[in-house]
């Protein structure tokens, strides 16, 4: 049974100059759901997330996140959303603790709450020993763990995760997937954008496939395999997005380089 509507997009169009990057997106995400949002590079996934957050205010159509319109109430949305960006920027000269204190304070949390929640997250992510290290010294995976912690600190209603498992080791990936499952079970909505198809296939309750700015397929994994007659999400994805024969294209690359 679907929960309360957390994200709603109706006829969303976004242009950058003459280029249309999103063309008539209709998508709902309910509380308790993890919706996989997949598509080839440049298909408009990150742009969608930026629209949902109100970072890009200029678009056509209707969007509601946690009941708010990002064009008029971006701040209210940001208070309720936990966001992990694909290419996130961090304050390099801050320590992990200083960065998390900064983010928590911006969300209006008191220092004791920030510390309690952050320490619990960092311990589970095996980063508690590095809490005094500057962010500039961290590896990509460690930065990702800091970002995940920062995104969860304020107990968001909606999670917008753009490649959240990027750079994480296997243990941390398993942990984050389990965290997302439990968050969804607790009634939170998750929009999960990733290129790792088997993770999306196993983790997400519904999957939306984006190609060229349009939503080309949408449903549960079982529905997609039934209607599109594929055995795996990777196969379905390749068939829908028209990637064609990978072997033939690889041969073309190798020939060009070898010549």
């Amino acid at each position: 049974m679907a929960g309360e509507l957390a994200i709603s997009m109706r006829g969303v169009r976004k242009r950058f100059g003459s280029k249309c990057v999103l063309d008539g997106i209709d998508l709902d995400v309910h509380a308790g759901e993890i919706v996989g949002y997949v598509g080839p590079n440049g298909s408009g996934k990150s742009t969608t997330i930026k629209l949902l957050l109100g970072i890009l205010p200029d678009f056509e159509g209707e969007i509601r996140v946690a009941g708010f319109d990002p064009r008029h109430a971006a701040l209210e949305i940001k208070r309720r959303v936990g966001y992990v960006a694909e290419n996130a920027v961090l304050y390099e000269s801050l320590t992990i603790a200083e960065f998390l204190l900064f983010v928590g304070r911006v969300h209006g949390l008191d220092d004791a709450t920030i510390e309690r929640r952050a320490v619990a997250c960092l311990e589970s992510l095996e980063l508690e020993q590095r809490v005094s290290s500057r962010i500039s010294e961290l590896s990509k995976g460690m930065r990702q763990k800091v970002l995940l912690t920062a995104a969860l600190l304020h107990r968001p209603q909606v999670l917008l995760f753009d490649e959240p498992l990027s750079g994480l080791d296997v243990h941390s990936q398993m942990l984050v997937k389990e965290v997302l499952r439990q968050f969804a079970q607790a009634g939170r909505a998750v929009l999960f954008s990733s290129h790792v198809m088997d993770v999306v296939e196993r983790l997400c309750t519904r999957i939306a496939i984006l190609d060229g700015g349009q939503l080309v397929a949408h449903g549960t994994f079982d529905e997609l395999t039934r209607t599109l007659r594929g055995g795996s999400l990777e196969g379905i994805f390749a068939a829908i997005t028209g990637d064609g024969d990978a072997q033939e294209r690889a041969t073309r690359i190798v020939r060009a380089i070898e010549s």
């Binding site: 940001k78 983010v103 911006v106």
Partner: peptide, 9 residues
């Protein structure tokens, strides 16, 4: 801005 854009600022 990369840090602040997604926060309630």
């Amino acid at each position: 801005i990369g840090v602040l854009a997604s926060r309630p600022v």
